[in-house]
């Protein structure tokens, strides 16, 4: 019983030392994904230490509080990974190290409390903490990749007789149109920066399915899950501008 505990304490010590690295290196500029992955590595050590230290006599009845702690600890670790642009903790080496120690403590608690609750459960709850950090690396604080810069597309003419078809942007390449700006801020997150579709459907060649009037009507009265932006967020002129832009995709 004592040996695993000693190994666990050694692993915990190593994790705490690694957590303190920012103190040596000063402010660290890392992409969010890599940062989360490093947190996941810290959590592997911490959770393993927790499991090894938490082993108990299987015949004794455990307090229900252990399982609650084991489930809440990974959530607290996630909160400490808050990927804010202006995070105080991230910008100060001491704060950063403190944040890491918090993450290690949560990982340890997840494994320890789970194992205290019942043998084997610590692996699941510690694993849950690690899995959360791994998953977080691919989207928590990570913006979707951009495909085509919106500045490359300008609004087509609405004059009668103008084609209203694909606009190469040759006329005013530097200035994104009002419609393109609205698209980028409100629509791109679901439909993709170039209309290629993300969680929402692709808008490529939408003009072959809906003309300008129908596009405007749809934006004004969409069917869920598409949110309704008009009139609370977008004015009638905004809707027209963005519908016009969509016609160029």
């Amino acid at each position: 019983m004592r040996r695993p505990r000693v190994v666990g304490l050694v692993v915990l010590g190593v994790a705490v030392l690694v957590a303190g690295l920012p103190l040596l290196r000063g402010p660290i500029e890392l992409p969010v994904t890599q940062h989360h992955l490093l947190h996941a590595a810290l959590l592997v050590g911490a959770a393993l230490a927790g499991v090894l230290c938490g082993r108990r006599d299987a015949l004794r009845r455990a307090s229900p509080a252990w399982i609650v702690l084991a489930m809440i600890a990974p959530i607290l670790a996630m909160l400490l990974m808050w990927p804010s642009a202006y995070s105080f903790f991230e910008q100060h080496p001491a704060g950063h190290a403190f944040e890491h120690v918090g993450i290690v403590a949560c990982g340890f608690l997840a494994g320890f409390a789970g194992e205290r609750f019942a043998a084997g459960v610590g692996w699941a709850t510690g694993g849950s903490a690690v899995l959360m950090a791994l998953l977080a690396a691919f989207g928590f604080g990570v913006a979707p990749p951009t495909a085509v810069p919106i500045a490359a597309v300008a609004e087509p003419s609405l004059q009668p007789g103008a084609s209203g078809r694909r606009n190469t942007g040759a006329s005013s390449p530097a200035q994104p149109s009002h419609g393109a700006m609205i698209y980028a801020t409100n629509c791109a997150v679901c439909h993709g920066t170039a209309g290629e579709g993300v969680s929402g459907p692709s808008l490529k060649d939408e003009r072959t399915r809906k003309n300008l009037r129908q596009t405007i009507e749809w934006i004004e009265n969409p069917a869920p899950p598409m949110p309704k932006f008009y009139p609370a967020v977008l004015t009638a002129a905004d809707v027209r501008a963005v519908a016009t832009y969509v016609q160029t995709l």
């Binding site: 804010s84 989207g139 979707p144 997150v189 993300v198 969680s199």
Partner: peptide, 13 residues
């Protein structure tokens, strides 16, 4: 709580 935090919609889905 913090609208500046980015989230990848495909990841979330």
């Amino acid at each position: 709580l913090d609208p500046t935090v980015a989230i990848d919609p495909l990841w979330a889905k």
